[in-house]
Design a protein around this nucleic acid. Structure first.
Lengths: 128, 128
DNA sequence: GAGTGTATGTTATAAGATAACAAACGCGGG
DNA sequence: CCCGCGTTTGTTATCTTATAACATACACTC
């Protein structure tokens, strides 16, 4: 009755894609429980760790939630614009910001392994 | 027996400055309890909300902690380099990154109210 | 088919944050 | 002066987020 992690990952990713909005780990857990009774938080967190590591999902640090990765951007960190009104997230990429961050890191000899770039505010629709 | 919020804010800021490192809300709470017995989490969170709002302290979204603001940078968001080994934080400012973010927001008509820019990795000392 | 290393499941609890209500203060009008 | 009322602060309880620690099952090799 155990599941291969690859299958778990697909399931979680499917939930995120279906919903198309940021979800907390516990919201995802709730969805998974519809089809699989006894599943517990650590399972979800472990799966999300893999998915975010691989860039197939993103963690929204400022709201403790996760979204499906829109962009197939291989390795550059996403810029996430989070609407505080409707909860939607837009994903952007910008090479120049990443370069600039790299430059700052170089200058202070900081070895960056991960970046977090988020904007909080109102999306176009909610601001209208 | 009540305290003016201004005094509370000074106390919290003093703790953060004294320690010179990121602290969680509960760590700050612990320090405050040394001098003031019955203080509770909401008091600390409320004070931190004011301080971060005013830019006198920063919240580290990716590690749920707070630091004293080094820079007196009036209104531009800080770029925070967090060392995962020793926990130190370096604060940077970079106008061009903020402009670039503003440009991205403009293009998608996103109304940004706050920015989060963090780097996670190893500081110069720990990488040496 | 026993031994061993790794992946997954489970239980329990730690850590972070806030809702909801209560009490104190401060200030303007009577 | 002191009453009423809005605002700030304190308190209790609870909710949400996340993980430690241990248990079990599987996969692979010899």
């Amino acid at each position: 009755m155990r599941k291969q992690s690859a299958q778990r990952q697909r399931e979680v990713l499917d939930v995120l894609r279906r919903q198309g909005r940021p979800m907390t780990a516990y919201e995802i857990l709730g969805e998974l429980r519809d089809t699989e009774a006894g599943i517990a938080p650590p399972t979800v967190y472990r799966t999300l760790a893999v998915l975010t590591e691989e860039g197939r999902a993103h963690r929204l640090e400022s709201i403790n939630a996760y979204v499906f990765c829109q962009h197939g951007h291989a390795d550059h960190a996403p810029i996430l614009a989070i609407c505080d009104d409707c909860g939607s997230v837009e994903e952007h990429a910008d090479e120049s910001i990443m370069e600039r961050l790299a430059a700052i890191a170089r200058k202070s000899r900081f070895h960056a392994r991960a970046h977090v770039v988020e904007m909080r505010g109102q999306c176009a629709e909610c601001a209208a």
